[in-house]
Design a protein around this nucleic acid. Structure first.
Lengths: 230, 230, 230, 230
DNA sequence: CATGAATGAGGGTTCATTCAT
DNA sequence: CATGAATGAACCCTCATTCAT
């Protein structure tokens, strides 16, 4: 009605939007923590709102159902992974190098941050399918490898299974008691060979020095309480 | 006088034991069917007893909790798998051949019987750990391959992840819409290569003719309602 | 700005707290009624929530188990008894007079309000031990009587058994078909004599006029549906 | 049909009757043990048949419901009490002496045999009402005392409450941690005084020497596993 | 938007009792 | 009579979701 109050509304709505975003983040963080500690199962919401110190009603202002929440967390986890790993993978031109690098980095991250590993394990095989990580990154490099002749596999689907399968198992191993020396390199090498990269090249690529990925202190994984291990 | 009673008692207890065994089987079958159709989640018991046409109380005469039931089913599924696949794998002396054969057979079985595939997918990664299958069969052949030098992988754990990971993903693919031509052979070949078998040998082994495994009509998988597909 | 929010919050939380208190009261009342009519046994919760016209979930927002509920009711019953009887007992300086007065009043109350009698009988001997009644009132007067030489009993435990035992039986009698003329006085006199008060004094004290205790209309006992008898 | 088989039938039926009686006894014993250890509550029958090493069906050949069983046990406990106590009470001509003697003996028995005390406590106040003990023995002596002028109480019902009340509490005390010196005599004396026996006479009667009641080794109480204490 | 009391469908478990063998 | 598998009504309890304030 009065144009003079516009800036005021603007201010209010901007403040409100920020508030809203902060609350949402708190919920996602708390949910990740809860999934990590208790798995994806019944009783989640109670724990989440207690962890986030938010009321029940507030929760439902942000997520309509618990699956909605799960999807949001999985998506953000995927995006965060990309944000951390992608910059370190992209410099490599060779698709095989990219895959090797990506696998080793992800396993390294999971080792250093149990929150991540737990979530991927607890969430089941579906956890990796949410968000955009798979689509954007893995498929991109697989396609590149097939097209360039670096991989001898012919089928995209098959390649995906040969890659994600071992990585998925790796998360289990990461959480287990014993973590064999050179496991990450070995796994990456195995995957490359499975895709058709010659053993010698695979071995060489996986033995290469690797800058360890570093999780930013303000990352979702850290905010969700992941204590750095090792 | 005394001896005339014995057979009577024997008869009674034998009849009782048989009845008991039949009921237990009905429950396990029904549970497998339910897991298959609805996944491993809440609400299981109700559905199982309805499917088995058995009272609530009867259920608890056999299984103390739903996890107990799940364990029983997983164990029996594993045992049944061994019973079917093992005889066809054992004739091969070469560990690589065994692995190739085993993988292809299992995928074939899963294709032919959705009950099996669904259960393995729905049950999550844990489903394969129950029972004795892994211990007895897979580890046996992996150890054989490592010891004989057929595989170049050094670590058992690593080898296991490189093998079970892709197979696990394969079950997903089996249930999906598209099943690429030559997928099973491709996957087996990939696994062999991952384990360090030279590409040429891997390709040859996986292209070999293979007697399709046949599921006995009285098998748990069939009793549980698996419609044969293709 | 800030201060204008506070009253709002205050208001909300006050309304919430009141509502909560009302619901809790409804549950306790209903429970007392149920214990009274059906005894303390299995099947309580269902009946309570039906009587209180409250959902199952609501019940568990207030009491974690049925024993929890029982404890709450017993405690409140005890407290209510004290609240009613104590003011009439305290004016007496003589411990023997206090005991006589207390016993007669309680029996009178039980006669006038079956809810009370039923609960004390159904709840078993443990019902009287909850809350603070015994500790605060009975033991206080017994100790007084022993110390002042009014009672010849020496042991507190013994005195308690000689007092609570007959009173406990009295509740049964109150609920029975026949209630002998002068029963309450007789019982009180017997207890005093048991404690060592001379027969003549005991008789005199128990024959004294007694203002009947009156149960406030808003008392738990009335709210729980006790129809006044006689 | 044939008269010649009569003796045979007789023999068979006699043997059968004995068998039957033995099984019934086993069940009653087991039930007493179970009531003693777990109280009178749900889950009884399972425990009883397991203790008696008898099948479910057999149980129902002897008792139609669980209350039926409880009644049988209470009755037998009462009868056994009479069988042990009565012979030691009857020699006394004075009703006051009889009551004093009876109370002291019963408390002594309960002290020496926890099975007895537990059952009487667990079973609630109703336990003493079953069977014939009360009718035959207690009432007999109370009537005697009133008629002879030994007791000044006038009402039978009142006298019963003044007697059974304290005894009932005594069972609780017997099971408690501390058992005051001279408790049994004190309680008996208190009861006598309550009934109107002069303090001096009551004190004298309760201080008299007392042959301790001895529980026959083949008594129900012993067979039910009561370890003798003290 | 925040709050938290209330909801109630949904699931799990027990146990007295029946009944075919 | 003995047996024990089967029954199912009756309970207890949880938790995702709604809604008045």
């Amino acid at each position: 009605m009065k144009t003079t109050i516009d800036p005021c509304i603007d201010h209010r709505s901007r403040v409100g939007a920020e508030r809203r975003e902060r609350t949402r983040s708190r919920l996602v963080e708390s949910a990740l923590r809860v999934f990590t500690e208790h798995g994806v199962q019944t009783g989640t919401i109670d724990r989440v709102i207690r962890t986030a110190e938010v009321s029940r009603g507030t929760f439902y202002n942000y997520f309509r159902t618990d699956e909605d929440l799960y999807g949001a967390v999985a998506t953000e986890v995927g995006n965060e992974l990309i944000r951390i790993v992608n910059p370190l993978v992209l410099p490599h031109a060779d698709p095989a190098a990219r895959v090797a690098c990506g696998i080793r980095l992800v396993i390294g991250l999971a080792r250093g941050n149990r929150v991540l590993a737990e979530f991927l394990v607890r969430g089941g095989p579906g956890a990796l399918r949410h968000g955009l990580m798979i689509e954007q990154v893995v498929l991109r490099d697989i396609a590149l490898g097939i097209d360039s002749g670096a991989f001898s596999v012919r089928d995209t689907r098959l390649a995906l299974d040969l890659l994600l399968g071992p990585v998925s198992q790796a998360f289990h191993t990461v959480l287990g008691d014993e973590f064999p020396e050179g496991y990450a390199q070995g796994l990456a090498q195995g995957v490359l060979q499975a895709l058709g990269v010659p053993q010698s090249k695979a071995a060489r690529l996986c033995a290469a020095m690797l800058d360890e990925a570093v999780i930013p202190a303000d990352s979702l994984f850290c905010r969700a309480g992941g204590r750095m291990v090792r």
